[in-house]
Design a protein around this nucleic acid. Structure first.
Length: 286
DNA sequence: ATGAATACCTGAGAGC
DNA sequence: TGCTCTCAGGTATTCA
């Protein structure tokens, strides 16, 4: 599941291998991967043809390729969803199983968007080179130099909701998914149901620090594992085999205290906590 | 304002 | 073996 570190690994790969290249052709194999491009696949192909890719940028889990601005500062906006990959391949390499969109480049290679579950997708973002208007509601992420921890703390305490719910709300802080939310909450010894309104400032500081740390560590690990022609990580390689303390560890001992990690139903999914290190709040206030 | 439910998807794995 | 069911999860949208 690509969260911020995985998307950043992809962005860096695109920066190295795709920026500076021009588009020599586009083939859409699965129109559903373009469903967020409302004018449709034909328009997508037309608008992308012959453009030059000038930058690879990211905010949270979104990334975009800025296009040359002779005409306008458009961009190809991309979300990997649950299973998306961006692969760089020689044109004669066999098509991978879940290839959805092929972009031929002027160096004879191809940028291939692959996505098993089709939760992700591509779209042309008009005037989106600097920041696509489609994602202005997405907050800055903790790896953004302009991320404002004090502003986040203020916004968090204005909410009245569970702290994990808030961490997953991309309008408050972006890039955090369920894996890193559980890991950061475990490190900060906070239960996911703690009320944001009543968090202490030092608890928020600690949480933000751990969110930043855990994603930074994952990025370092992910960054070591991709080779020149494989721009992605996508869970299987790189970070995913690193040791997780809480996420997915139901029944295994907490690395800190040995108490078995517990799994609760949460937002139609799961939440993993150490019942001893992360005690459940007794009431709505605490 | 908040959150709950739902739609969007495939395929691995479980259970029968 | 083959069927059906559950689960996994991010985001947008709609409804309460």
């Amino acid at each position: 599941m690509p969260e911020l570190p995985e998307v950043e690994v992809v962005r860096r790969g695109l920066q190295t291998h795709v920026v500076g290249r021009s588009v020599a052709g586009v083939e859409v194999l699965e129109p559903r991967s373009l469903r967020r491009h409302l004018p449709g696949p034909t328009d997508f192909v037309d608008r992308l043809g012959a453009r030059t890719i000038v930058a690879a940028r990211r905010r949270g889990k979104y990334l975009w390729l800025a296009l040359d601005d002779d005409v306008s500062g458009d961009a190809v906006l991309c979300h990997l969803g649950m299973s998306g990959q961006m692969l760089i391949s020689d044109a004669d390499a066999p098509d991978p199983r879940h290839l959805r969109v092929r972009v031929l480049l002027d160096d004879g290679r191809e940028l291939r968007f692959c996505d098993q579950r089709i939760f992700g997708g591509l779209a042309i973002s008009e005037d989106g080179a600097v920041l696509p208007p489609e994602i202005t509601h997405i907050a800055r992420d903790p790896l953004d130099v302009a991320f404002d921890p004090a502003g986040f703390a203020t916004a968090l305490r204005r909410r009245q909701t569970g702290v994990k719910r808030a961490l997953l709300d991309q309008t408050l802080i972006s890039g955090v998914g369920t894996i890193y939310a559980d890991e950061a909450l475990w490190r900060a010894r906070l239960h996911y149901a703690r009320n944001t309104r009543h968090l202490r400032l030092r608890e928020i500081d600690s949480l933000v620090g751990h969110v930043t740390d855990v994603m930074g560590e994952a990025l370092e690990q992910g960054g070591t594992s991709f080779d020149a022609l494989y721009v992605n990580v996508n869970g299987q390689s790189g970070y995913f085999d690193r040791s997780l303390s809480a996420y997915g560890q139901e029944g295994r001992p907490c690395p800190r205290c040995g108490t078995p990690i517990r799994r609760d139903a949460f937002m139609n999914r799961s939440s993993f906590t150490c019942p001893r290190c992360q005690p459940r709040p007794r009431n709505g206030r605490w």
